[in-house]
Simulated scan of single mutants.
Amino acid sequence: MAKDTITLQTAQEWAARWKKEGANYLAENQLKAFLIPGDDVTQVMAEEGVVNVRSYLGIDENNEPHLMIVGVDAEGNDMIDSEKGWYIYDFSEPCPNTCNQKAPFIIQ
């Protein structure tokens, strides 16, 4: 498995939790943004056949938010198949904790 990846089952569980609890999570925890490391985006884009990326929101079993990212092919389809080297990436860090501290886009 590639670095910073999760299984399809985990992604589905997190996405289902977001669908059920996401609105409440936003209201209670003030989620504002995600930091996405450039090296990790490069890793996704390097997968064979990837032309774009798509992100999905999720909440894990510890009530932590996640931005899950998958490669997308030229037809707009998610590319998820670990046997082909197409993974679901979970490497983002939520803001608060990783928020921008300089103008012009400061999120307090």
Score class of each variant (00 low, 15 high):
M1Y: 15
M1I: 14
A2R: 12
K3F: 15
K3E: 15
D4P: 15
D4N: 15
T5W: 08
I6H: 06
L8Y: 11
L8I: 08
Q9H: 10
T10M: 14
T10F: 15
A11M: 02
A11Y: 02
A11P: 02
Q12E: 10
Q12N: 12
E13H: 14
E13K: 13
E13L: 12
E13M: 13
W14Y: 07
A15W: 11
A15M: 10
W18Q: 07
W18V: 07
K19I: 12
K20Y: 14
K20Q: 12
E21S: 15
E21M: 13
G22K: 01
N24I: 15
N24T: 14
N24W: 14
E28I: 11
E28T: 11
E28L: 14
E28D: 11
Q30P: 13
L31K: 05
L31N: 06
K32T: 13
A33T: 05
F34Q: 00
F34P: 01
L35Q: 11
G38A: 11
D40E: 10
V41M: 11
V41Y: 10
V44N: 00
V44E: 02
M45H: 08
E47W: 15
E48C: 11
E48H: 09
G49T: 05
G49Y: 04
V51F: 01
N52P: 05
V53D: 03
V53R: 02
S55F: 06
L57W: 09
L57A: 10
I59T: 04
D60N: 08
D60T: 07
E61H: 13
E61T: 11
E61L: 11
N62S: 09
N63I: 04
E64Q: 10
E64P: 10
P65T: 08
H66I: 07
H66F: 07
H66W: 09
H66C: 05
H66R: 08
L67S: 08
M68K: 06
I69F: 06
I69V: 08
V70H: 00
G71F: 01
G71E: 01
V72H: 05
D73M: 02
D73Y: 03
E75S: 09
G76N: 07
N77I: 12
D78E: 09
M79N: 01
I80S: 00
I80E: 00
I80R: 01
D81Q: 03
K84N: 06
G85A: 01
Y87P: 02
I88S: 00
D90R: 06
P96E: 00
N97P: 14
T98D: 09
C99L: 07
C99G: 05
Q101L: 11
I107Q: 13
Q108F: 15
